[in-house]
Nucleic acid binder design. Sequence first.
DNA 1: GGCGCTCGTGATTGCGCAATCATGATGTCG
DNA 2: CGACATCATGATTGCGCAATCACGAGCGCC
Lengths: 345, 345
Amino acid sequence: MKTVPRMPGAREVPSAATLKHVAERAGVSPITVSRALNKPAMVSADLRDRVRLAVDELGYVQNRVAGALASASSPVIPVVVPSLSNAVFVETIQGIQEVVQRAGFQLLLGNTEYDLDREHAWISTFLGWSPPGLILAGTRHQPRTRALIERWGRPVVEIMEVGAKPIDMNVGLSHGAAGAAMARHLLERGHANLLFAGCRIAEDYRAGQRFRGFDRALASFGAARRPPLTRNVPSSPALGGDMLVEALRLDPPPGAIFYANDDLAVGAILRAQREGIAVPGRVAIAGFNGLDISGLVTPGLTTIVSPRRAIGRIGAEKLLGAIEVGSPKVRRVDVGFELIVRGST
Amino acid sequence: MKTVPRMPGAREVPSAATLKHVAERAGVSPITVSRALNKPAMVSADLRDRVRLAVDELGYVQNRVAGALASASSPVIPVVVPSLSNAVFVETIQGIQEVVQRAGFQLLLGNTEYDLDREHAWISTFLGWSPPGLILAGTRHQPRTRALIERWGRPVVEIMEVGAKPIDMNVGLSHGAAGAAMARHLLERGHANLLFAGCRIAEDYRAGQRFRGFDRALASFGAARRPPLTRNVPSSPALGGDMLVEALRLDPPPGAIFYANDDLAVGAILRAQREGIAVPGRVAIAGFNGLDISGLVTPGLTTIVSPRRAIGRIGAEKLLGAIEVGSPKVRRVDVGFELIVRGST
DNA sequence: GGCGCTCGTGATTGCGCAATCATGATGTCG
DNA sequence: CGACATCATGATTGCGCAATCACGAGCGCC
């Protein structure tokens, strides 16, 4: 038995059905099959049916990789977020998913854990998939990241906060304004010695923006300002409880605590309940995000609702619009926020 | 000015740096650049450095699409889950992400919303990306889906529950056993007229398995059995509270309610607190999942911890192992569960 | 000192599809 | 009724990369 002389470039035959096989079976050219599947309107009903039949008979599965290479664009939308532990990003992703899925796109998910080096790595990798566009959480990136994206030149949406100079499009809310609104509310309610409490506010700079908005508002109202209470571990309800206990040992003890997010704030309310700390009698508590559970604890949590699902949806819609018809006139959407006052303040 | 005669197949030049450009700049052949980037160990240190330099100078970004086409395999791991609203799946995804990211793979995410037609569509689409493997939540699929995957022939891990006849590998826990364990616990505590309460247990068949395990255990202990209380909307804490109120109007009222998940159960405890319903005095409450918040409410929620992050991690590790060295001997891993008894029962 | 070995590098080829242009059939209008 | 537009379909080509095989240099070994 002679060894078969293999030519350079020869390789194992994977033997899955390809366009060509479908075409032969349907008695048409490969390109017609391609059109019947991707642009059915361009093909007569008769051929379309024959192609469909052949596809079913062969169990043909389109090779997206080859399609993407040939067209220099693939039906994926990369989404880069800083965390999946935070329900906010999960819900935003769901909003994105709703929209892009309907348009036939798939989500490529990258999680940076609030690390800008990792963000750069994700984006660089994702660009190698020839996506038609890109969705990023946040408007802060390394200069090289920004340069990479700008050179690339396709539509980009930065979501979550409205930023000073977005790369392309931007959908979010002003976290500074949200912080200021909460400061105003707490002062109007007569609370004094207001304290901001959060986790990793250097990395989670949106929390930092809320603090600065809060702090500036205190200054403008002539109220006492104090440094934020922070921890360098991820947010969790249990931690919110711990921070409550710690805060109450400060001198002077805070009359109200504005937590960076609802996870922490809900944890504080539950802890207060366990330990018999009167809320808002001894200390008022407020949060940010408007998670469902904020309305179920006792007392109900005063919080600011961020329309995160809408952010995802609108961001995705703007991206798809830009992909189809080129960049739009409105580059920035401020979706705003809503203060919900409940028993905790 | 004459129009340039374009040959068939000619197209716009996208003018981004390619392997060839890097190769010219580094003074080596394109294949050496490919190796320097993908299999650095095969290339001498000298050439490796020259290639790295050229890559940086040109801002070269690897075209993953072309690589995937040439190698018939792409560095993505598709993950298909039934829901993102449920924290369980999000945490499982995080576990998967941790592992596959370290190995250089990216996550392609598909959400079926508990719809098996949509599951088939996702999987079919995903196979077109030539992934080296696949992770699916659940062991129930349409026959055509199973056939599609089996014909495809690459490693697959089904996660969440241990199933009767997995396609390939399987990592999860026995939800029937978990339900039975909770029945035993509630009976031991002296509760009677036990009720199971859940949402969409036809679609969320794992919740159904918990109910059946629960119900069979009641039968085996000679305790009273009753049909589950169900709702055909997604789970939420608010709904758990509503279902508590409804359950207490039943005749006879339940002495304990085993909720299909912690979201519902936590909502029930919060509602009981608001309305002054004694837990566990008037009714005991138990959940499933072991979310963090279950330990923070008052009373603490008795629940069963599902090691979901571990499921994700182990599932991903098994998949990567199978991708590298072929399918392993151990096809099924039962990660078990843990009953946490707290004040609510 | 010649044989075979490993190691690093290069030349050739094709992965499966869609973009482009070409063509034939049909319709449209003055 | 003929010139031309419109439509559906096909032929050719290349997207950018990695698999395969080829080959030469350096090495150890009997």
